[in-house]
Each structure stands twice: as C-alpha cells, then as structure tokens.
C-alpha cells in the first residue's frame, strides 16, 4: 500500500500553488497554476500536476487543506485555513524561532508575528487597496512597457534614486508619467517602485527581530529583500520556494488534521 500523502492548496489572487507532503511533513512535489477566473479548475490542475510529479495518484491523498482567497472554492478540500495561518506555519517549518513574517502577495500584504514555539501572536493585513502589492508592481511595469519578469534586473542597474510617493496605485501610475516627462530612466523608476513596495510594508507594523519574507513578489524579485534589509537595518531571510510557503503550511495542517 502506498504511503499516505497530504496536499496544501493555496489559491491566491494571481497564482494557485500546491504542495504535496508525506506524513513527516517533507515536501515531495509542488505545482503552480495561474488562478485565472476558474479557481476550481486551477486548483484541480495544480493538484494533478503535483501529484503526478510526486509519482503518486489522487487516491494517495489522505487529506487536502485549502488556503488563500479562493480557499472556499476548492470543493475537494477537506478543510480550510487562512493564508495567515498557512504562511506562518510554512515559514516556521524552515525557521524554528520567533519571527516576523512579511508576505507580499499579488493583491495584499500580511505581517505575521509568531513566537518561539510557532504560535501566532499578531497579524496585520494591508488596507483594502493594492498599494505595495504585486498588483502595484505589475501596473508600474505595464506603464513603462517593461515585462514584469525583467523588473528585478532592470532595477539593479539603477544609478539614481527616484521616489514614488503616492499610496494609490492609480495615482502612482500618474506620478510615473510625470517622472518620465522629467526624463527619469526606467531602471530608476523600477527601483523606485520596489522601494515604494518596501515603504508600504514597513509602515504596516514594526519589523523587529528575525524577519522572514515570503510570497510571489519576493520569489520573483529578490531585490525586495535587499531593499527591505537596507530599510530596516538588518537581515531579511526567505525560505526556499517562498511563493509556496502558504501551500506548504496548508499541507502541514493537512497532516495534523488527518491525524486528529
């Protein structure tokens, strides 16, 4: 009989992530699909791919825990956990200490504080606008006609500091048009946009002690880690595969739930 496996499905606003773990919580496979308009289809496709990569079959999955904004749409899930719980759990799996987790997602940011035993102490989410999120960066890239995947490399070539002050993504886009008119270089605006993301994050809560960053934005744009560290004056760590941190946490909860 094949060993039982457990799945975490994190349906985020931009991407749906799946992690498969064994009964000891070891990650065996992961998969990512754009969330698109059909969360059910995205989560099914991602699960099937991950199960396939794990060399298993759907029948081997003993328990599925879903998370993320689309968590309640995952009709095959046995239970749900919020992304706040799952990001904390996923990060704690790698860093077994008290920490502040900064998750920068497609449409929202979270700051989660946990104690030395992994218990959540506090959390904050950004207000409902997209300031300082992945959506903000995507809008800025679009305005500059730069592919989002090139933004990190472009920002690293920056030689001059450009400040983007607006909270609002729409106003920031207008501000960028003004910067372009003033002759600012796209590389400097790109770095300014990343710096703006960091500013929006650090004004949400204090980032004291061990700071760990997770989420898709950090995963694809490691410059954010560097700018954040520069801004708060100490190191910012990230777990392996930071975009899958929430899905890993969900999978670990699936193991716990199945045992109860």
């Amino acid at each position: 009989m094949a060993p039982k496996l457990y799945a975490g499905v994190d349906v985020g606003s931009s991407a749906t992530k799946v992690v498969i773990v064994d009964g000891n919580g070891a990650a065996l496979a992961r998969a990512l699909e754009p969330s698109g308009m059909d969360f059910v289809a995205a989560s099914k496709t991602a699960l099937e791919r991950a199960v396939n990569d794990a060399g298993a079959s759907i029948d081997d999955i003993a328990h599925v825990t879903s998370s993320g904004y689309g968590r309640k749409n995952v009709e095959f899930a046995n239970d749900t956990k919020t992304e706040i719980a799952c990001h904390a759990r996923g990060a704690y799996q790698h860093f077994r200490e008290a920490m502040t987790i900064v998750d920068i997602g497609g449409q929202d940011n979270k700051i989660i504080k946990i104690g030395a035993d992994g218990t959540r102490l506090d959390f904050k989410m950004n207000r409902k606008c997209a300031a300082g999120t992945g959506a903000f960066l995507e809008e800025i890239a679009r305005r500059m006609n730069v592919d989002m995947s090139d933004m990190d490399a472009l920002a690293r070539k920056s030689e001059e500091i450009v400040t983007i002050s607006s909270f609002c993504t729409v106003f920031a886009a207008t501000e960028i048009l003004s910067l372009i008119r003033q002759g600012a270089q796209t590389r400097d605006i790109a770095r300014g946009a990343f710096r703006s993301v960091v500013k929006r994050v650090i004004e949400m809560d204090s980032l004291a002690g061990r700071v760990v960053a997770t989420g898709g934005v950090v995963s694809h744009n490691p410059i954010v880690l560097e700018l954040m560290a520069e801004s708060i004056g100490h190191e910012v760590l990230t777990p392996p595969e930071p975009q899958f941190s929430g899905a890993l946490g969900a999978a670990l909860y699936a193991v716990d739930e199945a045992r109860q």
Binding site: I84, A85, T119, R120, M125, K128
Partner: peptide, 28 residues
C-alpha cells in the same frame, strides 16, 4: 476597514479572512 453604510469602502474577502485568521489565532 469598512464603513457603516458605504459598502464601497468595505472589502468583504479581506475582512472575512482577517476575522477567520483572528479566530484561528484565538484557537491556538
């Protein structure tokens, strides 16, 4: 974040996630 009457100022998904996460936290 919300409002007494103006639901344009209320993000239901975010608020429910916050409430559920808060109750999860109390449960821990």
């Amino acid at each position: 974040a919300g409002d007494l009457n103006d639901l344009r100022l209320y993000s239901e998904e975010q608020s429910i996630t916050q409430i559920e996460a808060f109750i999860e936290q109390l449960g821990e």
